[in-house]
Design a binder for these strands. Structure first.
Lengths: 233, 233
DNA sequence: GCCAAATCCTGATTTATATCATATTTTTTA
DNA sequence: TAAAAAATATGATATAAATCAGGATTTGGC
C-alpha cells in the first residue's frame, strides 16, 4: 500500500493516457482539430520539439517512446519518459511564453500528431469541459515532477538508480524483463548522476542479485529490495 | 537580455499576481466563490496546507509570504516562495488526487482565503475563460519548476546560492538590500545544500565583496558577478 | 533584563560521487 | 566483413559537499 504510493511518487513517467481529454470535444470541435493537425513519423533519436524554439504546436504521441529533457551545457536533464497516447508540450499553450520549455526526442520509431497551438488554446477558451481535462493532465504532470524533484535533490545515488529501475520495469515497459532502449548516458541524465556512477551501481545491484544485466537486456530479480533502497537504504 | 532570461529561468518564485484570474468570473460566479470562501489569519511559521492531508480547498494568499515545500525524512525541499496575491494549492483541483502534494507555511503574518475546492472545480468546468487563466497559471508554475529542477540537479553549490540570492533580491524583496525572513536552514532547503555549506558560501561571497551580510540583513553589492556565478562559474 | 533555546558560524574530517585514464565490447559504416 | 566509431565497463584519483564537533551570537519566554 505504502510502497505503491512511493513507487508512483518517484515515477519517471506520467501514466494516464491523455487521449480521453479529446472526448470532451464536440464533433465539430474534433473536426477543427483534425483540420489543424498533421501527423509526422519520426525515426529513433529524432527531435520532436527543440527547447527555446517557437512553440507553434501541441504534440500528441500516437505511437512510440519519447524523452522530454532540459538541455544544459555539460549535461542534459531528462524530466520524463513519454509513452504512446500522451500529450507532450502542453506548455506551448502558456500565454506568457511561446517557446518550448524543453526538448523532446524519440527513443523508437514514433508517430506524433502536431496540433496547432492557437487552435488548441481557442478550444480551451471555448470548451470548459475540455479545459478541465487539460487541467487534470497538467496537475498530473506537476505531481510527477515534484516526486522526481525530491528524488533527484534529496536521495543518494543508489536510491535514484533504484527509482529508475522500478519505474522502467513497472511503468514504462511493464515487465520485470525488458530491453532498454535508453543508453547508460540517458540513465545518467535521468538520475542526475555520471554515467560511470550508474554503471557502477548497476554492477553492485547485479552482484547482490537484485537485477540481471546483459548489455541492453535487464531483468529485475528483487523488486522488494529495490523498493527498500528507493525508500532510502 | 540574455541575463534577464537566465535570472527568470532559475527563479525561486512565480511572480505574476494571480488575482486577475478571478476577473474571468461573472458576478454571480464571484458571489458563489465568496459564499464558499473563508479568510484566515496566520502567524509566522504556521502551516496553511499539510502535505498528504485532504486537499479540501484552494488557497489564495491575500497578504504575507509563504514557503511551499516537500517534506522529507532528513530534510525538506522548498519548491518555491509565494508572495501575496498568488494562488497556492491549485493541485487540489486534480481529480486523481485529493491530498495536498506539498506543505505550505508562512514566513510572516499572513491572510489567506480558503476557497472550497469542489466549487473551484465546478467553476472551471463551467467557465472556459476562467479555466484558461488557471491553465496559464499552471504553466507558469511548470516553467518555474523546470528552471529550479535544472539548477538544483546540475549546478554546483556556488551557482545555486547565487541563484537564490538573485531571486530574493530581484523577485521576492525587490531591492538590493533586504531583511531575510528565512533562516539559513530554509536557504539550505531552497538550494538542496546543508546549512553549513550555505553559510560557508555566504562567507566567501562576503569576502569577495559580492554581498554584505549582517545577520538577517543582506545587501547585494555585485549583481553582475553573482549572475556570472549563477550561469556557472 | 535574564536565562534557555535556537540559530548561526567556523574548522577538521569524512564520504559520496565526479573525473580521469584505459580497456573492452557493441554498433555503425564503408 | 573489416575498420572505425560509439557505447560500456572498470579501476585509480580527485574533489565537492556533508557531517561532526565546538563555540559565538541571536532570539524568545518569563
Amino acid at each position: 500500500m505504502e510502497e505503491t504510493s512511493i513507487r508512483k511518487k518517484y515515477s519517471c513517467i506520467v501514466e494516464n493516457p491523455h487521449i480521453t481529454c479529446f472526448e470532451a470535444l464536440t464533433e465539430s470541435e474534433k473536426e477543427i482539430i483534425d483540420q489543424h493537425t498533421i501527423d509526422v513519423k519520426y525515426h529513433r533519436g529524432e527531435i520532436i520539439a527543440k527547447q527555446g524554439s517557437f512553440a507553434s504546436h501541441v504534440v500528441f504521441l500516437k505511437e512510440g517512446l519519447v524523452k522530454v529533457y532540459l538541455e544544459g551545457k555539460p549535461k542534459d536533464l531528462i524530466i520524463k519518459i513519454i509513452p504512446d497516447n500522451h500529450l507532450i508540450s502542453l506548455s506551448s499553450i502558456y500565454e506568457g511564453n511561446n517557446a518550448f520549455l524543453y526538448s523532446a526526442a524519440t527513443y523508437t520509431e514514433s508517430t506524433a500528431s502536431l496540433i496547432d497551438a492557437e487552435i488548441f488554446k481557442q478550444l480551451i477558451r471555448n470548451n470548459a469541459k475540455f479545459a478541465s481535462r487539460i487541467i487534470n493532465i497538467l496537475n498530473e504532470n506537476t505531481a510527477q515532477i515534484y516526486g522526481r524533484f525530491y528524488s533527484l535533490t534529496r536521495k543518494q545515488a543508489h536510491g535514484r538508480v533504484a527509482d529508475i529501475l522500478l519505474c522502467l520495469s513497472q511503468h514504462v515497459f511493464k515487465s520485470d524483463h525488458f530491453m532498454l532502449v535508453l543508453s547508460r548516458n540517458d540513465l545518467a541524465d535521468l538520475t542526475g548522476l555520471s554515467p560511470e556512477s550508474v554503471i557502477r551501481i548497476f554492477k553492485e545491484f547485479r552482484e547482490e542479485n537484485l537485477i540481471e544485466v546483459k548489455g541492453k537486456s535487464i531483468t529485475v530479480l528483487n523488486t522488494g529490495a529495490l523498493e527498500k533502497i528507493s525508500a532510502y537504504g
